[in-house]
């Protein structure tokens, strides 16, 4: 599935929610079900510092594609991280670098991406793209 197709799938899922409660409950569930990052990657090197919540991100490249794992100390941030990973993980560096990620706006969660939010998510997306650029440069 392409990045755009996954984004579209997420938008459709969110369309079924009637109110903000359902939406956040879903994100909280996603946060709880995010596969754990390997303990050895939960270090200062992998920490993306946000003012409010912290995110740990690890990436690796297999057969030309980049795979991400991550964790956060806040569950809503973790749910948002899970969405980002679902969209971006398993794609080529070029696809990741060019992803617009406008699904966030369409599912009504743009406030999590505003620069004032400082929840580490904006920095995480930036880091995911930086990792992709780094892998591309290595080739």
């Amino acid at each position: 599935m392409s990045i755009e197709e996954t984004e579209h799938e997420i938008i459709e899922e969110f369309e079924t929610f009637d109110d903000w409660m359902q939406k956040y409950e879903y994100i909280i569930d996603l946060g709880k079900s995010l596969p754990l990052i390997d303990g050895k990657y939960k270090t200062a090197d992998h920490l993306i510092k946000g003012c409010q919540s912290q995110v740990w991100l690890h990436s690796e490249k297999k057969e030309g594609k980049v795979f991400f794992t991550a964790d956060s100390d806040a569950i809503i941030t973790k749910g948002m991280v899970a969405l980002m990973i679902r969209v971006l993980s398993g794609h080529t560096p070029d696809e990741i670098m060019n992803a617009k990620l406008d699904f966030v706006e369409k599912i009504g969660l743009t406030q999590h991406l505003s620069p004032t939010r400082s929840n580490g998510l904006v920095s995480m997306i930036k880091q995911m793209k930086m990792d992709a650029i780094a892998y591309k440069a290595k080739n």
């Binding site: 903000w20 003012c51 100390d73 806040a74 569950i75 809503i76 941030t77």
Partner: peptide, 21 residues
Amino acid sequence: GLHPFDIGTILDQLGIAVRTG
């Protein structure tokens, strides 16, 4: 067991402005 950020986010949905962090 809960992160202040998460609580602040839900309270915001309810129109309640608190500070977290």
